[in-house]
Design a protein around this nucleic acid. Structure first.
Lengths: 125, 125
DNA sequence: CTAAAACCTGACGCTAGCGTCAGAGGCAAG
DNA sequence: CTTGCCTCTGACGCTAGCGTCAGGTTTTAG
């Protein structure tokens, strides 16, 4: 039987975050080391996360997949957290947007190229 | 005044290939080391490339950008060179195709996410 | 109470496509 | 002939996001 002390204390441990996102515990620790994720600590030193750490980590994964570095993500995190941005941050957002779009175009070109070859090798075995 | 000895001897040196593709000389040597590019050698040991090495290197760049390793490219090169493929190669082609498509989808999702934030931070400075 | 499972802090390893430095030879022009 | 650019072969360095082992504490299940 568990007793809920307060609604604000729904904290989870690092393994829960990791499993909730399908990433490794090591990865979550790494995010903290890079300043992406701040965790409270229990008296014994274990990391305690709020529930919203899980979607946050998912977001990190998406940005990593998009080619952003952890450094860039830390610089852009305030845009999500506070909603407030300065000119530099807006410029960075746009720059990353352009980079990703360019990458998509490159990938699409490569995909078309591959599809050509697949079509040829299929009709011409 | 240069004298053309034979049409088949239009060979270029590594610097020409590199400049022609906008890559470094080091990169071209690396491709050879990985078995992607075979070069003839002059008596003094300098690499001599046929003109078609230039579009070939461009192709390598495209495949690298698409996330293929040099190993994979060497395994798939016969599909271009000879046009002949076995079942394994066709499966690899398809697998790479799916990988690239999935990556495009991920990137598009990240782009949409970023665009949302940009829209918010623009109308809500 | 005890054993297993989960957590902790270092700290080294890994991959892949090059960058870069060192030291030595090759090649057209003036 | 020599100046200056190009090329050669090693071989170590770098980055970034973790994997992984070591050795120790903590929490949880039975």
């Amino acid at each position: 039987m568990t007793v809920t002390v307060a609604a604000a204390e729904r904290l989870v441990r690092i393994g829960d975050v990791a499993r909730g996102d399908g990433v490794s515990v090591r990865a979550v620790r790494y995010y903290e080391q890079q300043g992406l994720l701040i965790a409270e600590r229990s008296r014994s030193g274990q990391r305690l996360y709020r529930q919203d750490a899980i979607p946050l980590v998912r977001f990190f994964q998406q940005m990593f997949a998009a080619g952003l570095t952890s450094r860039r993500i830390t610089e852009l995190l305030p845009c999500w957290d506070s909603g407030h941005t300065d000119a530099g941050q807006r410029a960075m957002l746009r720059a990353e947007r352009e980079r990703i779009q360019a990458k998509i175009d490159d990938l699409q070109a490569a995909l078309d190229h591959l599809d050509e070859v697949i079509a040829i090798t299929d009709t011409h075995p």
